[in-house]
């Protein structure tokens, strides 16, 4: 490089420092918004996504909720609440009512898979290269994908609640409790989609998300208080359930739906879970997110 050119380059470097492309939050916000909006546009332009989103909650409640249909209500109450819990026995009206918060919590588990799959698709089709050849950081890509997937999962919540109403569940808790519950579900969804994306950051194989989904989803779904009361579990499974964020989202929801009470501790646990995974995931992704 000639001296004049070097000087000009040095000058540009100084000017560039003020407009630091990587460090400007507003600028990163635009990149995030662009990628996030893309995720949502792509998802909801697919008519099948909408159909599945609408049908799936009904299927859950119809098939799984009906599995205790022939159990007399008194016995069901004993099964779900235990013998020495008159408060619970008074509040439970059906298995669907008991099940609704749990099903919503477990449905947040699987949404991470879609975010991971769309990321792998972007790597396979080269779109990740298009993104990373602009001044967009890997961390921004990661956050947009994780929150995009979580948002997609949140759409299931109103549908599911409407479905529960259709199955005869009525909920009379105040609105702020509802808000807190939905916030808890959102945090759970963000945490799990962030976890999936972090695990698959360096993968380009279509099969990975499915394998991980089986590995994570099944144990966490059953070793939680989402579908059955944990009191019936052996102690080792109770231990898992006690640390499992799915349990906290399910209990948070059950408090609202069944008892009309609210547990700030459960919500706090979920917030901690989401924040920790997002932080770790961002660090992992900014290092290991592959372009192709």
């Amino acid at each position: 490089m000639t001296p004049a050119a070097a000087e000009e380059a040095a000058e540009r470097r100084v000017l560039g420092w003020w407009g630091r492309p990587g460090g400007d939050w507003v600028a990163q916000g635009r990149q995030f918004w662009g990628l996030y909006a893309r995720e949502l546009l792509k998802t909801f332009r697919n008519p099948w996504v909408i159909v599945i989103t609408l049908v799936q909650p009904f299927m859950w409640l119809a098939f799984f909720g009906a599995s205790f249909e022939n159990v007399p209500l008194a016995e069901l109450k004993q099964l779900l609440c235990g013998l020495s819990n008159p408060g619970c026995q008074a509040a439970v009206t059906s298995y669907v009512q008991f099940l609704l918060p749990g099903v919503l919590a477990t449905s947040m588990l699987s949404i991470g898979m879609f975010g991971a799959m769309s990321t792998i698709q972007d790597k396979r089709f080269g779109f990740m290269k298009r993104i990373l050849l602009t001044p967009t950081s890997r961390a921004t890509v990661y956050l947009a994908k994780a929150l995009g997937a979580a948002t997609r999962g949140l759409v299931q919540i109103p549908v599911m609640i409407a479905a529960a109403y259709a199955f005869g569940v009525t909920i009379s808790a105040p609105a702020w409790m509802w808000g807190g519950w939905i916030a808890g579900l959102a945090l759970l969804g963000i945490g799990f989609s962030a976890l999936f994306l972090a695990i698959t950051a360096s993968s380009t194989d279509w099969q990975t998300p499915g394998v991980i989904a089986n590995f994570i989803t099944m144990p966490l779904m059953f070793a939680s208080g989402a579908l059955f009361p944990t009191a019936n579990y052996p102690s080792w499974m109770q231990t898992i359930a006690e640390g499992n964020p799915v349990t906290y989202a399910a209990l948070l929801g059950r408090d609202v739906v069944v008892y009309h009470t609210f547990s700030a501790v459960d919500l706090g646990y979920l917030a901690l879970f989401a924040a920790a995974i997002l932080l770790i995931g961002t660090i992992v992704a900014s290092r290991y997110l592959k372009a192709e």
Partner: peptide, 15 residues
């Protein structure tokens, strides 16, 4: 990042 602000890219496979 500074360099990336000043480059354009056209892929072989049209992305």
């Amino acid at each position: 990042m500074h360099a990336k602000q000043r480059i354009g890219w056209v892929a072989a496979e049209v992305i």
